[in-house]
């Protein structure tokens, strides 16, 4: 099996994990799926080096290490901890049924493939699958953001969007300084950290984290 085929299969798995996240009903499973997806994404910068026949550079190793450290270990750990200690009801409550959202997800994936075939790119990506996979992850992340009620699933939607952007950024890997990459990772981490605290406080104050109930301001 050559590296190109392996990259393709990883990208297909990334899309499948996106779709699986639309169909799964347990919050903890959702978080684990996100961790697996991030792990797959973290391996891609290394493949870049292997494809050109050289050892992966220091740069790729830094990004892979940072991604694994923050998105595979730290963030899932925080989220799982909230789910466990926050006495959160461990099931997702979607606006749209699971089968329906799965179909919406499939349409989004197909649309991503259609759009990215017409997209003029300044450079050839790692694989023909890269841009479609990135768009799919982005769109499904946005869909999760708007279709799920719980604050914690919205955090996950936000993380999915970030994963999509990370995939897109892989094209620019060579020209993007590690400092910027680490900065983005830290931003995401701080974002999740703050959201975790907010979710915890919503839960403490209102006894639930249904975002739909937070849409009205109290005027005094």
């Amino acid at each position: 099996m050559n590296v190109q085929a392996a990259v393709d299969i990883v990208l297909v798995l990334v899309i499948l994990l996106d779709l699986a996240m639309l169909a799964v009903s347990r919050l903890s499973t959702l978080v684990r799926l996100f961790a697996i997806q991030s792990l797959l994404l973290a391996l891609l910068p290394m493949a870049e080096g292997l494809l050109s026949g050289t050892m992966p550079g220091m740069h790729a190793v830094e990004i892979t290490g940072g991604t694994i450290g923050i998105k595979v270990v730290l963030i899932p750990w925080i989220l799982l901890r909230i789910i466990r200690t926050g006495e959160i009801h461990a099931e997702v409550t979607p606006f749209l049924g699971f089968a329906a959202s799965l179909f919406v997800g499939a349409v989004l994936v197909a649309a991503s493939f259609a759009v990215s075939a017409r997209l003029p790119l300044p450079m050839t990506p790692l694989s023909a699958m890269l841009v479609p996979a990135s768009f799919s992850t982005l769109m499904i992340g946005l869909f999760v953001l708007i279709s799920r009620l719980k604050a914690i699933t919205q955090v996950l939607g936000f993380l999915l969007v970030e994963n999509g952007i990370f995939l897109f950024g892989l094209m620019l890997l060579k020209s993007m300084p590690a400092l910027v990459e680490i900065g983005i990772l830290l931003d995401v981490f701080v974002g999740v950290f703050l959201m975790a605290i907010v979710v915890y406080h919503i839960r403490r104050t209102f006894d639930h984290m249904d975002m739909d109930a937070l849409s009205e301001l109290e005027g005094r």
């Binding site: 899309i15 499948l16 779709l19 169909a23 089968a99 799965l102 179909f103 997800g105 499939a106 994936v109």
Partner: peptide
């Protein structure tokens, strides 16, 4: 089954 359809569609 929707999952199977989505797999095949992808």
């Amino acid at each position: 089954l929707a999952g199977a359809t989505v797999l095949a569609g992808l």
